[in-house]
């Protein structure tokens, strides 16, 4: 059995939709952050796969993915720092309650 492009894209799509679903439904910020990471990873898979199957001779997709992973790590660190601060202030990391920050 040949492993074709579609075998990679379908799990990636499922991951992405799970990410969206999780991001929209969860109220816990950590859970939302995890959902966000899920979406990012789905995209990373897409990059790698498209690079591998469509342009086997070049490496751009791979590099792009490496950068995206690095940036995602940094971004997660910042997000967690923010969440910890919100928790310190409110003893609560419900995203609905954090909307009071806009005032």
């Amino acid at each position: 059995m040949d492993i074709t492009l579609i075998y990679y894209l379908v799990p990636s799509l499922i991951m992405f939709c799970c990410g969206i679903y999780g991001f929209l439904t969860r109220k816990n910020m950590i859970a939302m952050l995890i959902s966000l990471e899920l979406m990012l990873n789905a995209i990373d898979i897409n990059f790698v796969v498209f690079n591998r199957f469509l342009y086997p001779g070049s490496m751009e997709g791979m590099f792009f993915t490496l950068f995206a992973i690095a940036i995602a790590a940094a971004e997660t660190a910042i997000a967690i720092a923010i969440i910890i601060n919100i928790f310190r202030a409110d003893k609560n990391i419900n995203v609905e309650d954090a909307s009071q920050m806009k005032n």
């Binding site: 991001f23 929209l24 939302m32 995203v95 909307s99 806009k102």
Partner: peptide, 14 residues
């Protein structure tokens, strides 16, 4: 529209 709720924004964006 500017509720400050991140999830609402994302939904609208989506």
């Amino acid at each position: 529209l500017q509720s400050g709720r991140v999830q609402q924004y994302v939904l609208l964006y989506l």
